[in-house]
């Protein structure tokens, strides 16, 4: 039965990691423009793209 306690801890950790990733992505502004990136990825000559 102890294994369940261990699993609970692991699942919480995994979920916490996703929460952290989500907050990080909001902070970086990923949710502010949800249209342009979908178009940008279709442009072909990307060899010179410099990302800030």
């Amino acid at each position: 039965m102890e294994i369940i306690a261990f699993l609970m801890g692991v699942s919480l950790l995994v979920a916490a990691f996703f929460l952290y990733a989500f907050i990080k992505s909001v902070k970086s502004g990923q949710y502010e423009d949800d249209y342009t990136p979908s178009v940008r990825m279709l442009f072909e000559d990307q060899q010179e793209e410099t990302n800030p």
């Binding site: 502010e32 423009d33 949800d34 342009t36 178009v39 940008r40 410099t50 990302n51 800030p52």
Partner: peptide
């Protein structure tokens, strides 16, 4: 590419 001196240009289309 059109204007030398521009380093990065980024579009926010919805806005």
């Amino acid at each position: 590419k059109l204007v030398p001196g521009v380093l990065v240009s980024r579009v926010d289309f919805p806005r």
